[in-house]
């Protein structure tokens, strides 16, 4: 077994693959000697040129599937690809719940406008506070209702990010992550989970004002308290999904 040592800088990628990748297409007119290292490298460089931020996972998939597609008829060798991408951590900020003191609304809303790679706003009241403070408007596409399952449809706040309903959606996200559920995930929960997976650090900004209407016994379901859901989420994200989680209360 050979050992190699290399030094990587932020932005560098290390691509490892089985010889089924470099020898893909072997014997075909165009690939007399297979795809070879040079072909694979050129392919990877083209992809990175088109999407400079492509994730390690997506690049590995792209290479493996390209190798598969240039193989004659079916693949005859093991095709595996591993990509390591050295980059700065990506930060997702999730704002949920109205601040306890109304006079903090503006500072709270400002946290939606910068300082993270991506932002999600979970909660109707939370979204309307940010709409008011940042003079923007959420757009909800009603055509998405069909895929919305048993959750309200997600929306977009232009220039800010995704918006969803709060308690029901976050509870669903938590359950899906805890149960490692793969399908039949309502659209809004799926949208949050996809963004969580694309990022490394998850910052929860939790407004602690409780909507008393949520505690009304006339509601058909018992709603969990926001703080408890966030605690459950923080635990599961750190333990099972290797995310760095911070929680700040407002």
């Amino acid at each position: 077994m050979d050992c190699y040592e290399t030094r990587m800088e932020p932005g560098d990628r290390l691509i490892l693959c089985s010889d089924g990748v470099t020898q893909a297409g072997l014997g075909q007119k165009r690939y007399k000697f297979g795809w070879r290292r040079s072909g694979e490298l050129e392919f990877a460089q083209n992809i990175i040129r088109k999407s400079p931020e492509i994730s390690a996972k997506d690049l590995a998939y792209a290479i493996a599937f390209q190798a598969l597609s240039i193989s004659p008829e079916k693949c005859t060798d093991d095709i595996s690809c591993l990509v390591i991408y050295l980059r700065h951590p990506r930060v997702l900020r999730i704002l949920t719940g109205p601040p306890y003191h109304k006079e903090h609304d503006h500072d709270f809303a400002m946290l939606a406008s910068g300082g993270a790679n991506d932002v999600i706003i979970c909660g109707g009241t939370t979204a309307s506070i940010i709409e008011r403070e940042l003079h923007t408007k959420v757009e909800i596409d009603l055509n998405l209702m069909k895929a919305s399952g048993d959750l309200p449809p997600p929306g977009m706040m232009p220039g800010i990010g995704l918006t969803t309903e709060g308690i029901l959606t976050l509870s669903k996200v938590c359950t899906v992550l805890e149960k490692k559920q793969q399908d039949k995930i309502p659209l809004a929960a799926k949208a949050i989970i996809n963004r969580i997976m694309e990022n490394d650090c998850i910052e929860f900004i939790v407004g602690t004002k409780v909507n008393e209407a949520h505690q009304d016994p006339n509601l058909p379901l018992e709603l969990e308290l926001r703080r408890n859901i966030i605690k459950r989420l923080a635990i599961i994200l750190e333990r099972d999904y290797r995310k760095k989680v911070t929680v700040n209360y407002y």
Partner: peptide, 20 residues
């Protein structure tokens, strides 16, 4: 149509289809 938690639990889901 309000998409907040309370309204959704008490019937908004049906109202969101009203256009159809």
């Amino acid at each position: 149509i309000c998409c907040g938690t309370t309204c959704y639990m008490l019937g908004t889901q049906k109202l969101l289809q009203i256009e159809n």
